[in-house]
Nucleic acid binder design. Sequence first.
DNA 1: GCCAGATACTTAACATGTTAAGTTTATGGA
DNA 2: TCCATAAACTTAACATGTTAAGTATCTGGC
Lengths: 157, 157
Amino acid sequence: MSVKKSTNGLAMRPFARSLPMQLLRAREALMQQFRPHLRARGLSEQQWRVVRALVETGSMEINTLGEACQIHPASLSRMLPNLEKEGRIERRADPDDQRYTIVSITAKGRALFERVAKESEEIYRAIERRIGSHDVKLLYDLLDKTIRAAPAASSRE
Amino acid sequence: MSVKKSTNGLAMRPFARSLPMQLLRAREALMQQFRPHLRARGLSEQQWRVVRALVETGSMEINTLGEACQIHPASLSRMLPNLEKEGRIERRADPDDQRYTIVSITAKGRALFERVAKESEEIYRAIERRIGSHDVKLLYDLLDKTIRAAPAASSRE
DNA sequence: GCCAGATACTTAACATGTTAAGTTTATGGA
DNA sequence: TCCATAAACTTAACATGTTAAGTATCTGGC
């Protein structure tokens, strides 16, 4: 009996077998390992994603950056002024098309990245050791497959 | 060469190989399938989690409910009055210990659940078909393992 | 019975998620 | 050239995430 009849009389997967729920739980479990470390460096989880994406790719416009770190452009519009005030990033209009705002990392932001990345990698390796590198690889593959399996608004099959 | 040297001169996994990031992407991809449906029923993603948890378990105190649906008690304190105003849940103090607030689902809330669950299961089945039920099961196992691998604040090994 | 310390929320404050509406800049066609 | 439309943000409004502080209730020891 894999599907449990609950008091509502309607069969539904138990809550623990909701894929979004388990993805959330897994992510939360992992982030609890990283948050104290980021917090100690004065970075929110989202700010770290922005910094990391910019270091990796150099510079990007808002929409691309949002896609890269899974943060809505509207949220970025609010976040970026703060990161800029702290001297971690820079913004300038694209000279070829004034509609675009090009965001880039500063030397200060890059230095911050170096420090955080080092510790972050250590935490990551500890987690990978616990799960096992084979299973981590398998998990990545299944997550990729899940992402591909969900038709995005942009790419309908 | 599995680890790429980026312009910062420090080796770090590429962003796409961040487990929290991929978990977020996968979850987002799935939720995009469900959100329009929930929205049409006047439910936020979080409200649906609360309703679903209550239908499954009957009634719970705030902290247990928060654990069940991964919503912080502070957020629940803000959300529950709304759900109560809409007649979907009820709250009452535990007669044995006034500190506890017992939350339960109403008949109206249960009826809402029935309707949403039906459509929700259809969407879920479509997703499972795309990924393949074998891989879905494997994914659940790996997520469980990931959750267990991250030491919680409450249970240090 | 009384009180210091726990417990279980609740509030408050600020950041982010999410959607809709508004603004500025480009583009393509009449 | 002019204008309707589109594109790329930006703002605004409201819900939720997150932490710290505050409030009401219990518990255990004296």
